[in-house]
Write a protein that binds this DNA or RNA. Structure first.
Lengths: 343, 343
DNA sequence: CTGAAAGCGCTTACAG
DNA sequence: CTGAAAGCGCTTACAG
């Protein structure tokens, strides 16, 4: 039983075969391939017929060699690996971006750079031009990769507002602050008066903005913010659990909590369950994301939906525009309150 | 504020620049790049110094154009999208493969083909040679993609034994049957006598083999298999929940259940909880996979660990060997019983 | 609108 | 061991 790499693969047809079949020059075939400008209708038709007949598919390597473009895009995740697999948000984003790119016939290269070592290798790979642009997924602002890529002139769009350098970098984000406001208002409308919050890391836009929304609503209602009602988390389930435990100790009269991510909210539910607090009767819990974690929680989470489909579609749109020469752009998308069993 | 695609990118150095710097011909530089054969030590050293000095990185498109290889590998998932995001196993596998390939400096192209339409487009892409080989992840044997790829001569390795055509196709799998035997023996060792099972889909190797292991152990113990103790699932959480509900109705005296995946086991726990059966006191529950789902379950799942790291590493190893011209190979890896709270 | 020609950056026989 | 040369499949000014 022999089977090698070239096994059943025939030599694929080239532009030359198409030209011969169509009775035109290779230049004309190429023009048809690249938009059909300066080509007579007759020639165009002959070429298209020849393409169908030969089953021709352009050789991207040859094309890239001359155009200097790779016709592929990188999806770069600079979080530690665990986060990627723990947090369903990344999955949703990855799928959305893959699909949006597929519509343009552009393959997505998945790049995982959790360690400084991996980051270096991948930076080299990217800056060598193996990818036309990068979809950057990383929540922390301390991340140097974003700056490095921008300085290298690599088209780039971040998911979430890059703290401190937004004006020079494209990004797509949900309206974090507004979503937080909706949730806190909802909790208050339930009659809760001791509303706490578990924040995201405060070096991330989600951490900062969702907390800001929380403060705004309380201030607007004339409720003084009690700092004992605020605990910070790290977007992990375990972090949420620990934060809730602290909250319970600092403010035993807590009757609601807005948690800055669904995954942390799962941890919060675990902590409340252990402390024999019923949800939502004793303590109402609101999440953020509407990730799959919201539905797998018990009770199912009332949460703030981030429009992941639109976020990924916009990231791709903005990136392709930038690769095409356009200036960077920021896109802010509205969120939606989703009410389920937890609040 | 202007910033375009070519912004900060300089024209990268070519092999020509390196040759000039090193005072040798381009051919010699190329030889150093490709293994250093037929190159004098002096020349090699000069070239390496020149590479460092110029920061040269090979242009893969030019290389691919002549070698006919793309130096990249596809990770093809033919499951419906939802499954990919619901089941943590895929994530673990994806990460493992990405890392194993990264060690060879080979990028992984993520390909999601959940619909017939996407499958067609991706098949075209792959058979056009844009990828040197594919890592195929799909649990169902009805999947035509595997055959199509093999017939097209594309180097291929499947995750899990492809039912009915294993002899002609590379695959890497855990020893499903043996893992199932370990788990059922464990449940019996706990003194349970009415041990049921929730199987995977019976057109998947995991569905068939894990059920076979279950039957074998019972037969070995002289226990007649009661078909009312067997319910089939679809590897989804909801499927596990439904199967457990059926089991409870058919065999109310159930005192243990071996579930063919951790994710389904989560659903089983939900159903048992609803039926007021305590785990593990009333009913012991054993899972399969040792995926992240095992740890997020309450109680944490006793399960059968699939060695995901090794599975992905072996998949990559076998694929690269095959791309290099070797014959297909099958690799079976041992599992390990992991005891936690649920049984 | 179209063809002939140059050239993208690299690898690989071919002579030496 | 090494250089000169051909050529991978395509795109794009350049003439017509």
């Amino acid at each position: 039983m022999t089977m090698n790499a070239t096994g059943g693969r025939r030599r694929p047809p080239t532009i030359h075969d198409v030209a011969r079949e169509a009775g035109v020059s290779r230049g004309t075939v190429s023009r048809v391939l690249n938009g059909g400008h300066y080509v007579s209708p007759a020639a165009e038709e002959a070429v298209n017929a020849a393409i169908r007949k030969t089953g021709y598919v352009v050789n991207r390597h040859a094309r890239s060699l001359i155009t200097g473009r790779s016709d592929s895009v990188g999806f770069l995740l600079t979080e530690p690996q665990e986060r990627f697999f723990e947090d369903p948000n990344f999955n949703v984003l990855l799928r959305g971006c893959t699909q949006a790119l597929a519509a343009h016939d552009i393959p997505l290269l998945l790049m995982l750079a959790g360690t400084p070592d991996e980051r270096r290798r991948i930076m080299r790979y990217i800056t060598a031009g193996h990818v036309d642009g990068v979809l950057l997924v990383s929540s922390h602002s301390g991340d140097p990769v974003a700056d490095e890529l921008r300085d290298a002139g690599v088209p780039l769009v971040a998911c979430g507002k890059p703290i401190g350098r937004a004006s020079k970098m494209s990004y797509v984000a949900a309206d974090d602050r507004d979503g937080a406001r909706d949730m806190v208002r909802h909790l208050l409308s339930l009659g809760r008066r001791r509303v706490g919050t578990v924040t995201g890391p405060l070096d991330t836009p989600g951490g900062v903005e969702r907390l800001a929304g929380y403060r705004e609503v309380l201030a607007g209602e004339g409720i003084e913010v009690d700092e004992r009602l605020i605990a910070s988390g790290d977007y992990s389930r375990a972090g949420g659990e620990a934060a809730a435990t602290r909250l319970l100790a600092q403010a035993p009269d807590l009757d609601a909590v807005f948690v800055a991510s669904d995954l942390m909210a799962q941890g919060v539910l675990t902590a409340l369950h252990r402390a024999d607090r019923r949800v939502p009767q004793d303590i109402a819990v609101g999440g953020f994301d509407d990730s799959p974690a919201a539905l797998s929680a018990r009770p199912e989470l009332t949460t703030v939906r981030q429009p992941w489909d639109r976020i990924s579609a916009e990231m791709v749109r903005v990136l392709l525009a930038q690769i095409g020469g356009e200036d960077p752009a920021a896109v802010i998308l509205p969120t939606e309150l989703v009410i389920r069993g937890s609040a």
